[in-house]
Every structure is written in structure tokens, then in C-alpha cells.
Nucleic acid binder design. Structure first.
Length: 430
RNA sequence: GGAAGCGUGCCAGAGCGGCCGAAUGGGCCCGACUCGAAAUCGGGUAUGCCCUAAAAAGGCAUCGGAGGUUCAAAUCCUCCCGCUUCCGCCA
């Protein structure tokens, strides 16, 4: 959520910012008008309560009874106004930073970097599903019978590959030398603290999900819900990593706090019927390695750049061609102030497809989560949060399969993963 | 799933209808003593909101959360959440 004081004092900036994010700027005026009534009612009610407290102390029981009735009526009105005000506040997205490109949708995202040679094949390259079915390492037919559409079985060498990737990423992000090397690309004195590995819960309570701004109108239909227990399945490890310091005040000296989490991600993919139905690109369930960090406001933009640098390092080590994209304001997620995506080359589709995202949330989530920093001068303020994909495993498997495919239908394994695999390629014999 | 108990400030821990934003101890900060330190003594030490240009002063709220009873709730009642222990089940 946005800072209420900021909205009051800078309504024009908020109007402008949210309209870039495709939200109706009139929401600001709605908010301010409810806020005004709210403040008047709070003031009135507080005064009544003050009188009631006095009357009580003086044992003026009759007077106190009368006031009680008035307070009750006021509180009823206050509750309504508060709910409306709250509702609007939830509809206000985070404001885009100054360097975020303007634009309404995906088509206006800006490519900021490209890396790697697009592979040339001396044969007709296949897509991951043809490759996977021929090698018997992907089975979507049985999965659809057992679980429905958009599910898959990963088998054999491909299942092994998933865990090799997990081990590889965890070893990189906990490695002091490598993390330091990447941090120094940002600036010579950039914090080079390593990541704490985490396996977080994959179910989350609704009230926490709301605090993470991940259950807002429009997002709810994307979530799997377990009604008997009133829990949601997470769409990303981010969702349960973000609240890890809820209601806590973190000393400045302890920052940044960096986590790398492995979890399954669950997505209903409502509204994407008919889109990417082939193979395992867009599925209801996939595993993902996610980075999450908490840092000082003045370093949060660089922290995001650091996340992107890690993503690029990982892709370069796997020798996968990619492009980094500055996502335009209209295509960004609601809680994002700045979003950088990475798209990896997928020969089966002959184009780049989104595999990574790095989201700078500033204090938008921290305000509701109530995660603060204790400065050295003892003052407090809300912390800044970043999250980013290390690898979305399904999609990176696709990229590896399609980029590393051989004429005979086998798939070479990226060199850096081989020591975790114990084999150099997936072929029919495995 | 069944049974019992518990949830108070930075920590420990009292309070069990008004005198309680909350005793006491510890911690931390400031001051005195000291050459300095320890010990000792004195003072201070929560958060959010309203009001304000801002602050001061003032007001309101907060003792896991949401409701309820009452003129008045940390204290009584209901539900929820969390923790602990025991039984059952289970990877």
C-alpha cells in the first residue's frame, strides 16, 4: 500500500503515477474524499470517547450512558467510511520510478541488453515437447488424465536435471567469492552478503496474502484456494518469503537480508485459456527458485540491479542466450516500482520467452507487513523489498532442451550442471 | 482428530472490572560519583492515529486477533489464531 501521508501531500504525483500503471487517477480523489470524512469522524469520535472517559471517572453514569450511544452510532459510520477508504487504498498500485518506460502493455517494453549467440542448427530444431516425448522425459498426456490440463510429469534425466539446477543455484548464491564478484559489478563497495537458503511453506493465510498485495482484485482468480482450511497455495516462493520478517524491526547493521527459496508454485492460469497450451511452458504447477531481499531504501534500486546481475550470471553460465527487458509501467505488476524481465531464447518457438523477473517493491509491501528498519540514530522507517527469479524450473528446462538439442534428438547437458548430474546428455538410452 | 494449559512492554514477569500504558527485576540511554571503569545513586526508555505547515501541548486507541457484556475490560463471555504438554494418526 502507498503512504497515506504521501497521497495527502502529493495527490498530483499519485494521480500521474497510477495512471501510468493503468489505474484510474480519479481513485485518488475518491480516496481523499473518504479520507477527509474519516478524519472528521475519527476526531469527533475521539472527542466523544474522551468525554465518556471523564464522565466514567466522575461516576456520572447517566451522562456516560448517553455518550456511549452516540459513540456507537459514530463508530458504525466510521466503520463504513474506513472500509471504503481501505478498499480504494488497495486499488492504488505502487508508483513507477522515474526511469520506468511509459507504455500500456508488453509491446512497449524496452530491450536493454542482449547476450549470447542465437544457436544455428544444421537440422530442423524441435520444440521441447517433441524432444521430451521422444526421449520419454515429459508426459503431459498421462498428467492430463490424472490431474487435468496444464500439468506434467517430468521423468528420467529431466527430473534429474531439475535437482541439478537446484543444487547449482543454491551453491552459487551461498558462495562468497561468486556473490562478491557479482556484487562488485554493481559498485566496488556494494554489499556482498550471501543468500540464506530457505524451503518456505507453499500455503498461506488470506490476511497475509493481502499484506503482500498478492490477493488484490484481479489476482484472486489466479490463486488456488483450499476452502476447508481457508488457505491459498502460493504462486511463488516470494509469497511466503516476503512475510518472513512481518512485524519486525531490523537493525540497519543487519541489512541486507537475502534469501533464496525453493518451492513449488501454483497458478490457476485463469484467463489464459488457449494460450501456450503446448508443452510445459504455462502450467498449474511448477518449481521455482526465488530470491528475496530486504534492504535500505537508498540501496534498493541497486539491489534490484544486483538481482538482475545474478540472473544474467546464471544464464551466462548455462550459456543460454537472453535479453533483458525494462518492463513498461502499464505492463508492470501492481506492487512494483520498477520491473526488469529476462527473456531466454527458445529455438522451438524461434523467439525469446519470459523466464525471469526482478521486482522492486520499495516499501509498498513492507508498509502492510510492518517490516521496519532501526537506523543507527534509533529512528525507524519501512524497509525496501526486492524479489527476483533465480530459475523458474519448467521454463529453464525448456530453454536447455531446445538450445542444447542435437541432431539425433538427444540433449547435451550444460557443463556447469554435469557434476551434479553424473551424465553429459539425455538420450534415449538413459 | 481428542484432552489440558498458556499468549502482557526490548527480555523476564506481576496484575484478574475503575486508582493500569500497565508493578518489580534485567537490559538500554542520559546524568552524578570516579583519573577511568565496575559497583552505587538519580532520571529516562512502546507504537499507531487525530489535531499542527511542523513541533510542543492535548486527545484517542493498543496487554495474540475479532466480536460481546458494562458507564468502565489486560482483567468477565464467545469465536479465531498461535504456542506448550499428553493421547491418537502419520512421512
Amino acid at each position: 500500500m502507498l503512504d497515506i501521508n504521501f497521497i495527502r501531500n502529493n495527490p498530483d504525483a499519485v494521480r500521474e503515477g497510477i495512471s501510468f500503471k493503468k489505474a484510474d487517477p480519479r481513485l485518488v480523489d475518491d480516496f481523499l474524499s473518504f479520507d477527509k470524512s474519516w478524519r472528521e469522524l475519527v476526531n469527533e469520535t475521539d472527542n466523544l470517547r474522551s468525554e465518556q472517559n471523564k464522565a466514567g471517572k466522575n461516576r456520572e453514569i447517566e451522562k456516560a450512558k448517553e455518550l456511549k450511544e452516540q459513540i456507537r452510532r459514530n463508530e458504525e459510520r466510521l466503520k463504513n467510511v474506513e472500509e471504503e477508504r481501505e478498499k480504494i487504498l488497495r486499488l492504488l498500485p505502487n508508483l513507477p520510478m522515474a526511469d520506468v518506460p511509459a507504455g500500456k502493455d508488453e509491446s512497449e517494453n524496452q530491450v536493454i541488453r542482449k547476450w549470447g549467440e542465437i544457436p544455428k542448427f544444421d537440422f530442423e530444431p524441435k520444440d521441447h515437447l517433441d524432444l521430451g516425448e521422444a526421449l520419454d522425459v515429459i508426459d503431459v498426456k498421462t498428467a492430463s488424465e490424472v490431474s487435468g490440463s496444464r500439468f506434467n510429469y517430468l521423468k528420467g534425466g529431466l527430473a534429474m536435471l531439475e535437482f541439478a539446477i537446484v543444487q547449482y543455484v543454491f551453491s552459487v548464491l551461498t558462495n562468497k567469492e561468486i556473490v562478491k564478484k557479482i556484487a562488485q559489478k554493481i559498485s566496488p563497495d556494494f554489499p556482498d552478503k550471501v543468500f540464506t537458503p530457505v524451503v518456505p511453506p507453499v500455503m498461506i493465510k488470506p490476511e497475509i496474502y493481502v499484506k503482500m498485495a498478492r490477493l488484490d482484485p484481479g489476482q484472486e482468480e489466479e490463486r488456488f484456494h483450499l476452502p476447508n482450511d481457508n488457505l491459498y497455495l502460493v504462486g511463488s516462493a516470494e509469497h511466503t518469503l516476503g512475510p518472513i520478517h512481518m512485524d519486525k524491526i531490523i537493525p540497519e547493521a543487519d541489512l541486507p537480508l537475502r534469501y533464496v527459496g525453493f518451492s513449488t508454485a501454483f497458478r490457476r492460469e485463469a484467463g489464459s485459456y488457449g494460450k501456450d497450451t503446448r508443452g510445459i511452458l504455462r502450467v498449474h504447477q511448477f518449481d521455482k527458485i526465488e530470491m528475496e531481499s530486504f534492504c535500505l531504501p537508498e540501496l534498493s534500486v541497486k539491489e534490484q540491479d544486483f538481482f538482475v546481475a545474478i540472473q544474467e550470471y546464471l544464464l551466462q553460465e548455462l550459456k543460454l542466450p537472453y535479453q533483458a527487458v525494462a518492463v513498461c509501467a502499464g505492463d508492470m505488476g501492481g506492487p512494483d516500482a520498477r520491473q526488469i524481465d529476462i527473456e531466454t531464447w527458445m529455438p522451438g518457438q524461434n523467439r525469446y520467452r519470459e523466464t525471469h523477473t526482478a521486482d522492486l517493491m520499495t516499501d509498498y509491501q513492507a508498509r502492510r507487513l510492518n517490516t521496519k528498519i532501526r537506523r543507527t540514530d534509533n529512528s525507524t522507517e519501512f524497509i525496501h523489498m526486492n524479489d527476483g527469479t533465480a530459475f523458474a524450473i519448467g521454463r529453464i528446462l525448456i530453454a536447455i532442451m531446445e538450445n542444447y538439442q542435437q541432431k539425433d534428438g538427444s540433449i547435451l547437458m550444460p557443463e556447469v550442471l554435469q557434476k551434479y548430474l553424473g551424465f553429459e546428455k539425455i538420450s534415449k538410452s538413459l
